[in-house]
Every structure is written in structure tokens, then in C-alpha cells.
Design a protein around this nucleic acid. Structure first.
Lengths: 343, 343
DNA sequence: TGTAGTTTCGTGTGCGCACACGCAAATATA
DNA sequence: TATATTTGCGTGTGCGCACACGAAACTACA
């Protein structure tokens, strides 16, 4: 194992100087600094996190800003679990966590929690930037404090986040197209269920729809896509009525594509005659969706391994804070196929 | 944070004595030992893992015994990579690795490397127990040395391995059945390619075949399964001749099920007329299989995340050796579906 | 040339623990 | 009682790093 003083020896300086370079503490001539940096790089030196955290009594706090989860909307639960698993692992390195949760569809709640996050003055932040404008409004404050931040799940651009972790929406939609295709055969008449709850997510959702549709175009498979709008997914009665009514109007309907994570909500609302003939493809392995998979009400779910997303976000940030390891700007989660037989 | 010397002060002894008590090193009178233990307990003192692992220069060596990989058989490559990734991570905790590779189909090479492993006298061992009899012959020696060991990939029973990491063969076969079914429709005539290279693996392979077949039985889908035996997969010309000849004899053939990791070998050997009509389902995301997926020669691959298997095996062993954490006896890898669109 | 200020760097200390060394007291042996 | 042996314990050192302190070396200016 190569140590700081090894580097110091090779560079003909003292350990203190290497330390200054590693931490950009200044007070080192550019000439020596460059020499040290080169040797550090050539030898692939990494700060020993164990020794570092022992010497460094200062604990690092990472703030996490994500939506809350409820009984009916557990999408963010796995992320939370991943975050907490990571905490457990890094606790001994003096890493602390502060989780701020907001109401997923409430911009003012987002702003409120964002404000709290800023006031807590963390060493790093993990943010699910659910609302673009509000994000743009508050991000400058954490940039002013030179707090590094990572975006998770939603890939806003135009920001200086050190990384993004999430799924490639288009590709996952394309894959959904394939799965729908194999379970359906051709030709296909497919309904796409849209809701208008989340403004920012819409971008991701429409990319999924685009990918889905493009699959059929590319394979030259005749496809009829019917858009069905459901205004309020929280109103079960309304969902049931609208959904069944709208779907029954569609001739030869054979598939249901739900680009959001709410597939289970819709299959639960389906009348049994529809349920029996429809192949359903949805997204995200929430508890509800998994249950619907088990009961054969959903054919395929495409998942993005949210647990790992939460875990990896923390891990990336820790590596960045302690070992100064620059993360890759985009970390795309594997696009996982879930079906009754492999959950 | 309460430290060893805090305890020492309270107990009116030196830090060294506390250390002796904590590690049961002996050389402490029962009277003082008891006093120290009480204070340790009253103050809920826990050894600081960070400082401990920094001071503890004693390195633990973990020996790994797995098959080698070659250009044509890369199944074990990912496992190796996972193992090495884990090494990188645990290096700072003083974990060392010694990898012994044997020829996958050569029992004497297995024995030879097993013998070397024993002579290296590691602190723990990860073993892919490819040959049952030879395993039974050598395991007692490492048990005599009280070396804990983990089985990976092949689940031999009747041994005292502290854990097994691998796939549930039956379930993965069952899933293969479903994937074949959705890509084929019904009814189906499917050829199963068998080879007789690896004796032990045969158990896993026949479980996969059983699961595959059971899927169709359970779903009451008419199915004709035709077994095709290929003796020597290494002889490309022979493979090509036998395979095409045998398959062309089968009326209405529409699917090819390859329960081993060699799917790519067979699709490469297929005549184009066969290739065009057959849906192929195979196992394990080797480079060759992934390439065949990309080229649409294989429809689905079921993978067992070998990388994670290698990584987790090391991680489990490290936790066991350092933190004395008992692993779960069976750790089944997720059954992953790979297709052209999600690799 | 002399002095003050600045830049650039080396040294020393401590984080909490593991472990080797060796001394003193207690006990055994002659 | 003198000496040898064992038992019980304190001390010191180092793991790799962070950071404070202060000393050269260099610069600026009178």
C-alpha cells in the first residue's frame, strides 16, 4: 500500500507538502504541486479512508432531499433504504446523514425542505430535483457555499451537479416496447395511461413513451397507440370510472402501457373482462407493482434498482468528500426486467 | 466518544491491560479483568473499528479457487472481476487475496490447485466446488485447520461451508420457459442442447431443464422437447455438423434452449435458415453471449450477476473474519433477464 | 545592505488501537 | 534466606493521515 510519505519521498518533499497538495490547501509553489500531482496520479495513490477518518475528527454530513413515500406511493422507499444501508456502512468513517423529505407533488413543500437543507449547511447533498424552477432558484445558494451535489432520478441539465444517477428513460421505454411486443405478438392496439401529476417527471415519461413507440416503428410493426388521460390518480373511484370507460371505447385493445410507476393503481381499477385480455407493462418495482406482478395482473415491470441508486449516490458522495474521487457525470442504472418468475 | 484509555483510567489500570481484557489475551488477574469488564459494559464501550483496523497490521488472506477463463469460455471472468473489485475495496483493511485457477474440465488440475490452496494456509477460502469427489477429498484438510469456506456457483451439500452464493437453477429454468413462451407463442417444439463436459454442473443444468419444462406443464401449454447431445463443444466443425443435422430432423422446430453458458457457440454454428426461424434462450452474460444478443441471434439470456457473486463472496468472508458476522447460509443471486435492449 | 513581509515548506503531535517489550511483584524452588 | 520462575501489568511504538506551528528562502522596499 502506497502512503503519503511514499509520495513525499518520490517527490522529494515532505509529507506535509503532499498533504497540502492533496487538499488544495495552498501554500505550495505550482512547480512542486504539479510534480506531486503527477506522482500521485502515476502511482494511483488514494487517500486511506481509514487513517483519514481517524485523524480527521470532523464528521461529514450529507444531506438528502427526496420525496416522501406513502402507503399508496412507495416509489421512493427503496431509495431511502439504500441511503440508510450506505449510512450504516459509512458511519464508522464519520459520515452523517440528514434526510429531508417533501411531498412529491407539492412544490412549496419541496422549497421548504430545500431551504432547511441549505440551512443545515451540509458537506454534500443528494437531491431529487423534482421541480425545475424551484431547483434553479435554490441551487445557487448551495453553490455559493461550495457544497457539491448529486442529482438522483431526474436529470436536469444546466446545473453543476457532480453526478447524476438514474435511468435512461428512452432506452427503458424502448425495452418496454419489446416486452410488450413479445407478450402480444402483432398487430397491436395499445393504450398509454398518462397522468399529469408531476411536471418534471413528464419529461422522463414522454421519453419513455417515445422509446416505446419507436421500438414498433423500428421493427416495422403496425401499432395503434391510444392516449388515455387520468387526471387524479389519488381518487380511486374516478380512476376506475374513467379508465374502464375510456378503454372500453378502444377497438381490439390488447395492451396497456403505463410509463409511470403507478401501473398497479390502474390494474387494480380494471374491470375483470379487460384485465383478462390485457398485457400490462409498467415501471418501477414498488411493493404494489410487485404484488400485481405476482397476481398476473402485470406482465412486465421495468425497474431501475432504486435501492442501488440510493446506496450508490451516498457512496459516490463519500468517495468524493473523503477520497476526492471525481464521480462519472452520469451513472445509468441497469434497466432491469421484472416478471412474476424472477422477483 | 469513550476510548480504551478512558476505560483504563476509570479502572485504575493501563490501556494495555484493558486491551488484554478486551481481546482475551490472558495475563490479567481475574479480579482486575472483572473490574474492567464491568466498566466496559457500564459505559457501553465499543472498539473503534476504524482505529482498530488501522492499527491492526495483521493481514487476512482469502484464497479463491475458481476455474480459469479463456477466450472461448469467459464464464468465470466476471466472477474474477468482482473478486478483484472487492480486493481493491478491502485492501485498506488489510485483506489479501490469493487466487488459484484450475482448468474447468480437468479434475486433476482442480485437485492440484486445491492442494496449493491448502498449503497457502489462508484465513478463509472461496471455492467453486466443480468436482464433488475431489472436493470431498480435500475439504477435511481445510476444516482441520479451521479455515472457514464459502461455496460459490455450485451448491454441494453435505459440507460445512458457512455460505453458498449462486443461482436457483430450477427457478432460472422456469423463467427461461416463460421467456421462451412469450417469444414463441404456442404450441412449441423446442430443442434442448446438452453437452457432457462438466459432471457436477450437470445437476444444475438438469434442474434448469426441469424448471423450463415445468413452466409449460404448469401453464398447460403443449410442448415438445427434443434433446440434442453435442459431445465436444470445443470441436467447432463437429458442433456445426451434428447440430445442424440433428436440428433439421425436427419437425416444426421453433426454439432452442441452451441450459449451459455456451449458447453463443451453438448459434454461431447454426445454418442461416435455422438461425432465422429459431428463438434462442440461454444462460450467463459472457462476452460471447452478449455479442450474440446484440446480433439478434439469441433472444434472451438469463444471467446470475457473476460479478456480484464474486464481490459478495469476498465481502461476506471479510465480514465474517473481521467483524465475526455470520453470513446467511444461502445467498441466491437475482435472476436477471438480458436482452438486446438492456445490456 | 538591512529590514520587514511573504511564500514555501518541514516537523511534530495526536487520532484510538494492537501488540511487543520488559519490569516488578508474587510465587515457587533450592 | 537466596534465587529462579511465573504472573500481572505499564510503557512505548507505529498504523496513515490532518493540521498547527514555525523555520528557511525569497521578495520588496528603504
Amino acid at each position: 500500500m502506497i502512503t503519503i510519505s511514499d509520495i513525499a519521498t518520490k517527490a522529494n518533499v515532505s509529507a506535509g507538502t503532499v498533504d497540502r497538495v492533496l487538499h488544495n490547501r495552498g501554500g505550495v509553489s505550482e512547480k512542486t504541486a504539479e510534480r506531486v500531482r503527477k506522482i500521485v496520479k502515476d502511482n494511483n495513490f488514494k487517500i486511506n479512508a481509514v487513517a483519514s477518518s481517524l485523524a480527521n475528527k470532523k464528521s461529514r454530513t450529507i444531506a438528502v432531499l427526496i420525496p416522501d413515500y406513502s402507503e399508496t406511493n412507495t416509489f421512493w422507499k427503496d431509495t431511502r433504504l439504500g441511503v440508510e444501508k450506505a449510512l450504516e456502512e459509512f458511519l464508522k468513517f464519520g459520515v452523517k446523514l440528514e434526510v429531508f423529505v417533501f411531498q412529491q407533488f407539492d412544490a412549496s413543500s419541496y422549497e421548504e425542505e430545500f431551504q432547511k437543507l441549505i440551512e443545515s449547511n451540509p458537506d454534500g447533498a443528494i437531491i431529487a430535483p423534482t421541480f425545475r424552477n424551484e431547483t434553479a432558484k435554490h441551487i445557487p445558494k448551495i453553490e455559493a457555499n461550495k457544497i457539491p451535489y448529486i442529482f438522483i432520478n431526474i436529470d436536469l441539465d444546466g446545473f453543476k451537479n457532480i453526478s447524476f444517477l438514474g435511468q435512461q428513460s428512452y432506452k427503458s421505454g424502448y425495452l418496454a416496447g419489446k416486452l410488450m411486443h413479445v407478450s402480444l405478438g402483432m398487430p397491436a392496439v395499445i393504450a398509454v395511461i398518462q397522468t399529469k401529476l408531476n411536471v418534471e417527471n413528464n419529461q422522463a415519461l414522454s421519453r419513455r413513451i417515445q422509446g416505446f413507440s419507436d421500438y414498433f416503428v423500428k421493427k416495422e410493426i403496425p401499432l395503434e397507440l391510444k392516449m388515455v388521460n387520468i387526471d387524479d390518480v389519488l381518487d380511486a373511484k374516478m380512476v376506475k370510472n374513467t379508465l374502464n370507460l375510456e378503454l372500453s371505447k378502444i377497438n381490439g385493445l390488447s395492451g396497456l402501457f403505463v410509463p409511470s410507476s403507478r401501473a398497479s393503481v390502474f390494474v387494480d381499477a380494471l374491470n375483470s373482462d379487460l384485465l383478462n385480455i390485457l398485457e400490462v407493462v409498467g415501471f418501477d418495482g414498488t411493493e404494489q407493482n410487485l404484488n400485481s406482478l405476482k397476481d398476473d395482473r402485470i406482465s412486465f415491470i421495468i425497474s431501475q434498482q432504486s435501492f442501488n441508486q440510493g446506496y450508490n449516490a451516498i457512496k459516490l458522495m463519500v468517495d468524493f468528500l473523503i477520497e476526492k474521487k471525481l464521480p462519472t457525470p452520469k451513472m445509468y442504472s441497469p434497466i432491469e426486467i421484472l416478471t412474476k418468475e424472477n422477483i
